[in-house]
């Protein structure tokens, strides 16, 4: 029973970690919480659903198409919502409100388009299950976990080892200085948004096939939980986001089975508040949280 909860927790936790990386990337570069990230995650799952049901596309076609489309959405979020504000050097709250507006818009557009009811979602990863003792591990869980880990390693490699990743780090440290070094700052920012949106899309699809249903509420709840994960690990730190995501996933699945299932969604928020109380810089964050 306990081992089973750990397996379930690690599966869902790895998905949270993937979305949390998106938050951390954008936050690292812009010092901004992207409220539209949760909506992008939902949109990814729904794009695949719409492509498969309305247009009759098969999964191997629908999923890459959706990922590309979400890349475009990520670009649009930055272009429509934030570019002007950056030029005007607007206060940070304006940008926050703007991303919230974009998120609300996306969420409600989908609600109007396909309706608010829960949709059943195909499981693309159903290859049976393995039983070890009393613990059942399905191949879906293994594939989700491995995919997430691979993607996280890939993103970390890009950020820490390649030239484009180094320019991301440079922009996150000092935009003005990065510009003087000949880095195309606005391209780097755009790219960050695109990558974060694509990661959100992949996680949305994985969650859809894990639970085999999707609904339009998923964006808000997961947006909040993954943010809690990012803060727990230390916003802006990629290893932190991974650890935070896994911890939130584990806490949630263990808490749901041993405390109360009704309060399942409250656990992540409780963790968030405790972290802010005890160590606001998070587990892996640098110790320079702006206090006032």
């Amino acid at each position: 029973m306990f081992l089973q909860q750990i397996v379930n927790g690690l599966t869902i936790g790895s998905i949270y970690a993937l979305v949390a990386i998106g938050y951390s990337l954008v936050f690292g570069v812009l010092r901004l919480i992207n409220f539209a990230n949760g909506a992008e995650y939902m949109l990814g799952a729904y794009f695949v659903y719409i492509l498969m049901t309305t247009f009759g596309a098969k999964a191997p076609l629908a999923i890459p198409l959706a990922i590309v489309a979400l890349g475009a959405v990520g670009y649009l979020v930055d272009f429509v919502g934030l570019r002007r504000l950056r030029k005007k050097n607007a206060p940070r709250m304006s940008a926050l409100i703007s991303t919230l507006g974009v998120g609300t818009f996306i969420e409600n557009a989908i609600q109007i388009w396909v309706g608010t009811e829960t949709k059943s979602y195909p499981n693309f990863l159903n290859f049976g299950r393995i039983t070890i003792g009393k613990t059942i591990i399905s191949w879906t869980q293994i594939i989700i976990f491995v995919t997430c880990i691979l993607l996280m390693v890939a993103v970390s490699f890009v950020v820490y080892k390649t030239k484009i990743g180094k320019s991301m780090l440079a922009v996150s440290q000092d935009q003005m200085c990065a510009r003087l070094m000949g880095i195309n700052v606005s391209l780097v920012i755009t790219l960050t948004f695109v990558v974060a949106a694509m990661l959100a899309c992949v996680s949305g699809v994985l969650v859809g096939s894990y639970y085999q249903n999707i609904d339009t509420n998923m964006s808000f709840i997961v947006g909040m939980k993954t943010f809690a994960a990012a803060v727990l690990g230390g916003v802006g730190s990629l290893p932190g986001a991974v650890a935070g995501g896994l911890i939130v996933g584990l806490a949630e699945s263990i808490g749901a089975s041993y405390v109360s299932a009704g309060y399942r969604d409250a656990i992540a928020f409780a963790i968030l508040i405790i972290v802010l109380l005890v160590k606001p810089s998070g587990l892996f964050g640098k110790n320079n949280v702006e206090k006032m």
Binding site: V80, I97, S98, L100, G101, V102, T104, F105, A109
Partner: peptide, 8 residues
């Protein structure tokens, strides 16, 4: 939907 657009 309109509120979202309005915010932006």
């Amino acid at each position: 939907l309109i509120y979202g657009a309005l915010m932006v």
